[in-house]
Design a binder for these strands. Structure first.
Lengths: 192, 192
DNA sequence: GTCTATAGTTTGATAGAC
DNA sequence: GTCTATCAAACTATAGAC
């Protein structure tokens, strides 16, 4: 019988993914052991391998989880009348994460670097973390009439977000992130 | 008798630091073993501990090496008549590193994240990697008459560089980096 | 200063009882 | 599906001969 549904806590598979996501965000992929993840998820170590054949398989599920989370955020931000307004909405969503970012960095950005450094099985997965964001940004810019420039604008916007998040963590200053997001809002305003 | 000076290759200590710097840049701190570093430096594993008491000590020496390298780059860029011209010079130096960045990311940025994720002994060392750069940027902006705004401008410039480098590696596109550096040059020009 | 051998621990992964 | 016990490999670090 399945272990989830109306009952108290999520099933073991989801608990493992969630625990892996958090541990990898805090300590990095290479430094996070399956034992740590299993303990945090309250699942016996040997049982992990029933749900995920390898550590690589588990992090692949974590990537999918991140993709679902960012897609949900994009859907939230999509509730706005104008394309530039929707981009402002997304920036507003980022502001809510500043406490997490100052502590452990951007979840997507950190995992992206980890994947680029990881072995040959994972090194091409990092672009997936940013694909949805980039496409959504580009779509908004295109709808705002930016034409062929839209893709470059999307990349620039994501680069600013990633750089601001990295520096925010490195300097342990949430103000760094909020200041840079202010600049981003100003930049968007100027594009109108 | 010392193992360096006019002879062929650097002494063992410097070889270890250089090998550690490269391996950590390629594969990350946590995933890089002392055995790998020792082999690349052509030093027996047991001998590493004569020069560095722990792996942490070795990465601390790598940090100092990075600080020396970035200081040398800043000195090169400092050869210019105007402060904004010197900032343009620095951007020009960054352009020369685009092949390395697209392959393994910004050496300072990657190590910075690794240090933030590492244990309590290293997590406060990452800001040292950026301190010299930030101070030098701020000095140039101040000399350009930007006053109290100078520090914020320095942080913004470094954030743009770091975000561009990260996305350049993530998307395996050197063009991402060069495009963003073009924007940075344009931004500096506009500040004049 | 240099190097071999190895201790002691942790890791990813498996076997097999229930 | 679940869990204990454990393997084989890799790791940081040390001991001790030279």
């Amino acid at each position: 019988m399945p272990d989830s549904l109306p009952s108290g806590r999520p099933n073991k598979r989801d608990r493992l993914i969630s625990a892996a996501r958090d541990a990898i965000h805090c300590h990095g992929y290479a430094a996070t052991s399956l034992a740590t993840i299993a303990e945090a998820a309250d699942v016996p170590l040997g049982n992990v391998y029933y749900y995920f054949k390898t550590k690589e398989d588990l992090v692949r599920a974590v990537i999918e989880d991140h993709e679902a989370l960012i897609n949900a955020t994009l859907e939230t931000a999509a509730a706005g009348p104008t394309p530039l307004g929707r981009l402002h909405n997304f920036v507003a969503e980022l502001r809510k994460q500043s406490e997490v970012v100052v502590e452990h960095g951007c979840p997507l950005g950190c995992l992206g670097q980890d994947l680029d450094k990881a072995g040959p099985g994972l090194e091409n997965e990092s672009r997936r973390l940013f694909a949805a964001q980039l496409l959504w940004f580009e779509t908004q810019f295109r709808e705002a009439g930016k034409g062929e420039e839209s893709k470059a604008l999307a990349i620039h916007m994501l680069a600013c977000i990633q750089g601001a998040s990295a520096l925010c963590e490195r300097l342990s200053s949430a103000e760094v992130l909020t200041n840079e997001l202010d600049l981003l809002d100003g930049w968007l305003h100027q594009l109108a």
